[in-house]
């Protein structure tokens, strides 16, 4: 039983981690908390449902479609909700946060109207593949989710640390103007960051749809807030911290159910936000907050 719960916790944690990676990427470069990330994730899941259930398309097409749509949404988000605020004088640093809250509210209710309020099943034969180890049933999806989350984490670390584009990204994160003086195309770098982060949200959405067979318009808000808690837990803008934070939260939530009261499952994330920010604002794995 314990091993089964451990698998549950790691699956949940890996999903949280993928969502948090998207958050942390945007924060690391732009210093912006993208409150709409959860809703973009939800749209990714819905695109998966539409492709596999409505059009009976294959799974790979669902992945492609979800990545394409969420990447496009990322572009629109950057173009209309973030860029207009960037070079404006006298705009408070709260403006992008508020603006993305607006995007999240808009997207959540938009999906209510497009897809309907109910729960949409995600039927993919891939999700049914499982194997028995002793008395434990393990689903292939659970393993895939874990592997993808680890791969994404390493890819992101490598990309940020070793490639030229990644270096440009980090330079932009250090200082926007200096980077621009040094010949980094800042506008393009920022847009690309938001697009990549959003596409990662889309991938996470499909994985959740497959793993839990459940897609609703409300799922974005819930997982978005969790993702927020994780990047605070793991340290803002810290890629490995996001991964670790995701796993910690996933396991903590699972074991509160096992040994405690499942009613407080949701409270862990929010309590963690408060405690971490008050005691160790740089997060468990962060060094220092750069303002």
């Amino acid at each position: 039983m314990l091993i089964e719960q451990l698998i549950n916790g790691i699956t949940l944690g890996s999903i949280y981690a993928i969502v948090a990676l998207g958050f942390t990427l945007v924060f690391g470069v732009l210093g912006i908390i993208n409150m709409a990330h959860g809703e973009i994730f939800m749209f990714g899941a819905f695109i998966g449902v539409v492709v596999t259930s409505t059009f009976k398309g294959p799974l790979w097409l669902a992945f492609l479609a979800a990545v394409a749509v969420t990447a496009a949404m990322g572009y629109l988000l950057e173009r209309f909700a973030l860029r207009p605020l960037r070079n404006k004088q006298g705009v408070s640093h709260l403006a992008p946060l508020i603006s993305t809250i607006g995007v999240s509210i808009l997207l959540e209710n938009l999906s209510h109207h497009i897809f309907g309020p109910g729960n949409h099943p995600f039927r993919a034969s891939f999700a049914e593949i499982s194997f028995q180890i002793g008395s434990i049933t393990v689903y292939l999806v659970q393993i895939v989710i874990f592997v993808i989350s680890v791969l994404l984490m390493y890819a992101l670390s490598f990309w940020l640390g070793k490639t030229k584009a990644g270096k440009a990204l980090r330079a932009t994160a250090e200082n926007l103007e200096t980077a621009s003086l040094l010949g980094v195309d800042v506008k393009r770098t920022i847009t690309m960051t938001v697009i990549i982060a959003s596409a990662m949200g889309g991938i996470a959405g499909i994985l959740v749809g497959m793993a839990f067979n459940s897609v609703t318009p409300q799922m974005g808000l819930s997982i978005g807030l969790k993702g927020l808690a994780i990047i605070i837990l793991g340290g803002m803008g810290n890629v490995k911290g996001a991964m670790a934070g995701g796993l910690i939260l996933g396991l903590a939530e699972t074991f509160v159910v096992v040994y405690g009261d499942s009613g407080y499952k949701d409270a862990i994330a929010f309590a963690a936000i408060i405690i971490i920010l008050l005691i160790r604002p740089q997060g468990l794995f962060g060094q220092k907050i750069s303002a």
């Binding site: 210093g31 408070s92 640093h93 927020l228 009613g263 929010f270 408060i274 920010l277 604002p281 303002a291």
Partner: peptide
């Protein structure tokens, strides 16, 4: 008092978390 060490965005997030914790307590 404790949140004042935090800058704008962080404060907003702590308050967001606080609001949710309050709601979860009312529920439970």
């Amino acid at each position: 008092i404790p949140t004042l060490r935090l800058q704008g965005v962080y404060l907003a997030i702590v308050t967001l978390g606080f609001g949710e914790v309050i709601r979860v307590i009312f529920v439970n």
